[in-house]
Amino acid sequence: MIAVYLCDDEDAVRHQMKTALEWKIFVEDYDMKVVCAAATAQELLDAVEDNRRSVYFLDVDLKDGEWDGFTLGQELRRRDPHGTLIYITSYGDLAWKTFQYHLEAFDYIVKEEDQTGVSAARCLEAVHARLLDERRDPAEVFSLRSGDGVRHVPLDDILFFETVSKTHHVFMHTADSRVDFVGSLSELETKLGGRFVRVHRAYLVAVDKIEAVDRKRNIVRVGGRECLLSRAGRAKLKKRSGGGL
C-alpha cells in the first residue's frame, strides 16, 4: 500500500484535500491510504516512515520554525528518495522550476476556493499512473552525487566514464549529457563490475555500447563518441570477446 501524506497549516484546505483524496482512492480503488494530514512540518516528519516511496502533498508557504516548503521537501527526499512530492501554493508565481529540478517535485496545485480538492484528486490520478509505470520496469540505476543532489541514471544509458583535469573528478557520458562528479575510475571499475571495461587509463567504457575498435588510431567508438584505447585496454577487450576482436 502506498501512504499519502498531507501537510498544510490551513485547516479548511487540509480538510478539503483529505476528503477529496480519500474519496478518489475509494472510488478508483487505489492501493493507497491517506495516513497523515498534518498542520505542521514536525507533525508530518514524526509520522513519516523512511524509504516507503510515499506520496506527499506539501504547502509551499509553510512557516514552521526552521522548515519551509523547500527545506521540508529536502528532508523528505533524504528520508524517502523515491517518494513523490506535490506542492500546494496560494499563488501561481512560485519558483516552480527550482522545486522541479532540485526536489524532483512531481507537480503543483494552486489553491482555489473549492477547486483545490478536485485538483488534488486529478494529481493523485497522475501519480498513480506513473507509479504503475515505474513498477513495470524497475531499471537498474547508477546513483551519483553531483552538486547538492543525488542523481539516478539508468545504468543502461551510460556510455563511458572519463577522467577530468581536475583531480578526483570524473565525467559520466550518456547519449545526451555529460555530468561531472567526485569519484575515481578505479573505484567505479570495481563497483560497476563486468559491464564496464577500462580501455585506457582515462576511460571506463560500457562494453555493450562499443560500436567499433579502430586499432590503427587506438580508438574505441562508443555511442558515436571516441575514447582512447591503450595496449592493456586492447588486451582486456580481446579477452572479453574471446579473441574475436
Partner: peptide, 20 residues
C-alpha cells in the same frame, strides 16, 4: 576550483548547463 561540479545535457531539444 575543486569545489565545483558542472554538468551538461541536451536531451529533448533543451540544452542544460548546471553548475554547483
Amino acid at each position: 576550483y575543486s569545489n565545483t561540479v558542472s554538468s551538461t545535457g541536451w536531451a529533448g531539444g533543451v540544452f542544460v548547463q548546471e553548475l554547483a
